Simulated assay, not measured.
Amino acid sequence: MKHLSEYRDAAKVKKLLSEIGAVVKRPRMLMEVCGGQTHSLVKNGILNMLPEMVTMVHGPGCPVCVTPASMIDQAVALALREEVLLCSFGDMVRVPGSSKSLMQARAEGGNLKVVYSPLDAVKLALDHPEKEVVFFAVGFETTAPANALAVLQAAKLHLPNFSVLVSHVLVPPAMEAILSDPFNTINGFLGAGHVCSVMGMQEYYPLAEKYGVPIVVTGFEPVDLLEGILMAVRQLESGKATVENQYARVVRPNGNQQAQAVIREVFEVTDREWRGIGVIPQSGYKVREKYWQYDAEQKFGTTTDTTVAPTDTGCIAGEILRGLKKPAQCPHFGKGCTPLHPLGAPMVSSEGACAAYFHFSQAYEMIP
């Protein structure tokens, strides 16, 4: 299949690995921002094939993983209200809050419905006027257009019983938070191709210039990833620091203008809390005032209490999400913490670094 088989070609992979080994002259640490990229790196064994001088670090690129406990707590509180039907994607159901997950809330009688699209939640609101239907809108810029469209559709239908609980976060501010950390050791980034397909590449140029790091927008297949790594290493070895686009078959410099317009119509930028990182200024979306009737926080008077800390389980998710440690360095990894019994969000989502390491650990000897 075009744009699939050629990006999994073993001969191309071997050639790219050889080129990376020939180009790199000193230790380089690169961070892939996207959880899908992390999953592909681990699943395809790329981490073990790279030259020793190239180290991949896994960033906060899994939206499920970075959703803070305080937002889960809000969702749980809504699900436990008799008049509310909370709708969520399935990957959010087992993410731990400060005391319980949505799955535990449902076991206690909470009203929770797993959906596959925000428009499914709009239809439920249309079909069940007796219920307040709330969609838990989580994700990076990639999912923001669909969630914004759900709000616009509800407004078009004049639905009084639909709202969204928004926990959208933005990639560039998180990258800057990592780069400005005094303990940062990242030399370059592989940018999230799907995010850039929506938002374009313009936001990354100031970061590359300010911090002197190459940023290569990259796809998700083995050849994509290795091409992105090679492009980043070439920049580093030549003393350059700019933005390049490996994923040109999908990403355009200015992104998807129509999707961006829909986002701007419904959402505005705000400060957001990230699990394991803290509050990052201007790093997320909230519902604009003109659409407050569809904002669950405004409708139900819920608030995000960032002072409530989750129960201390010994999980090092925060250090993993900031790229300071890898999953296998956690003493609970693969033992007390597994996908069936996760202690932290990175073990819940299929895009989480811990889950990726766990599922492919036996093949690549990642469990200590």
Rank of each mutant, 00 (worst) to 15 (best):
G219I: 07
A105Q: 03
S238K: 15
E141T: 03
A241V: 01
T218L: 03
E203Q: 14
P182I: 03
V198D: 03
V233R: 02
P129L: 12
E227V: 14
E141I: 01
A148M: 10
A121G: 06
L165A: 02
K113M: 14
S98P: 02
E244F: 00
K240L: 14
T218S: 09
V134R: 02
A192F: 12
E227G: 06
Q104C: 04
Y116C: 08
V138L: 12
N187R: 02
H168L: 12
K113A: 12
E244W: 00
V122L: 10
C196M: 05
G219V: 07
I215Y: 12
F220A: 07
A192W: 11
A146G: 12
N147I: 02
V243A: 02
Q202L: 13
A107D: 11
E227F: 02
L225I: 15
L102H: 05
A177G: 01
G193C: 08
P160K: 13
S117K: 04
L149S: 15
G109K: 11
F162I: 08
E108P: 01
K210C: 03
V134C: 04
G219P: 14
K240C: 08
E132C: 06
A121H: 01
L102G: 04
P118A: 11
L149N: 13
E141S: 10
G239D: 09
K113N: 09
P160C: 01
P118K: 12
A154P: 12
G212N: 08
H194R: 06
A232R: 05
A232T: 13
S238V: 00
A137S: 15
V233C: 07
V115G: 06
F220K: 10
P173C: 01
V169E: 10
F140R: 07
L126D: 15
D127P: 02
K131D: 06
V151K: 11
V164A: 13
F140P: 13
D224E: 07
E209M: 11
G109V: 04
H158Y: 07
E141L: 06
T185G: 00
L207D: 07
A155V: 12
G110H: 04
A137T: 05
L179I: 06
V114A: 09
G219Q: 06
P160V: 03
K240M: 13
F140Y: 13
L190K: 13
D120N: 10
T242I: 05
A148G: 10
N111E: 09
L165V: 10
K210G: 05
S98G: 06
A232W: 00
E176D: 08
A125E: 04
